[in-house]
């Protein structure tokens, strides 16, 4: 083993010298001195490299892990909670949407009749004797007009029936007041069937430009009421 090879091996790993190196060092005083010198340097190197480790590092590592584990467990739980909450909310949502499609009001006549019942007290004492011109001004918004008088008009007010803005006319019938709702044509899926209860009846008439609902006393001749209005109803172009 030449000197360079000897030095390379000692330099590369001074603490683990193989037998060949040890024998060479035994045989040669200068090689022995070199090995000693390098092992001395190695001890210094070890001391320098074994820098102080923060005292509580180990416990902080374990703390971090347990916090992380706790957090991920929480997250797992949260996910479960959220999923549960979402399903509950979904179920409630379905419940509500079914409720809002209140079976009572799938029939438009029913809805109008309810409106009439709700406003009964209000209309009972209301007589504005609305002139035809005012009614026509309001009907213009629906593209319609009355060519002739339809008799006494107690009131002509806009009202809101769910999403539909209707003109609510109260006129005289043979058996009492007749409520007429003039509405823009709607494509909402509704039941337009004629209905009746012990006091009133409701009938819808789907005309060219508007939909009209009549709510009249039960004994009222609906056919007559209908033609009474519809014969005088014309469309503005």
């Amino acid at each position: 083993m030449d000197d360079l090879e000897f030095r390379r091996k000692v330099f590369a790993d001074p603490k683990h010298l193989d037998d060949e190196i040890k024998q060479a060092a035994q045989a040669d005083a200068s090689k022995k001195r070199f090995v000693d010198e390098m092992q001395n340097l190695e001890s210094k190197l070890e001391r320098a490299m074994k820098v102080d480790v923060p005292d509580d590092l180990a416990s902080r590592i374990i703390l971090r892990q347990s916090l992380d584990q706790h957090k991920s467990e929480q997250k797992r739980k949260m996910t479960w909670y959220m999923a549960t909450a979402a399903s509950v909310a979904f179920a409630i949502g379905i419940g509500f949407s079914q409720m809002s499609q209140d079976p009572e009001f799938t029939n438009i006549n029913q809805l109008a009749m309810q409106h009439v019942y709700d406003d009964a007290m209000y209309h009972a004492s209301l007589d504005l004797d609305v002139p035809l011109t005012e009614v026509n001004a309001k009907l213009a918004g629906y593209g319609a007009e009355l060519t002739d008088s339809i008799g006494h008009i107690y009131s002509a007010n806009y009202c809101q029936m769910q999403a539909i803005r209707a003109l609510h006319l109260v006129i005289d019938g043979k058996q009492g007041q007749v409520n007429i709702f003039v509405m823009p044509k709607t494509d909402v899926e509704l039941d337009w069937q004629h209905i009746a209860d012990e006091k009133m009846q409701g009938k819808a008439s789907r005309l060219q430009g508007v939909d009209v609902i009549y709510i009249a006393p039960k004994q009222e001749d609906m056919q007559q009421v209908q033609s009474h209005l519809e014969n005088k109803l014309k469309w503005r172009i």
Binding site: R8, F11, D13, P14, L41
Partner: peptide
């Protein structure tokens, strides 16, 4: 690896 270890110590020894 052994060459790099040799060079590392060699540099330190020279500096020293």
């Amino acid at each position: 690896v052994m060459t790099r270890l040799f060079r590392a110590r060699n540099m330190l020894k020279e500096a020293l």
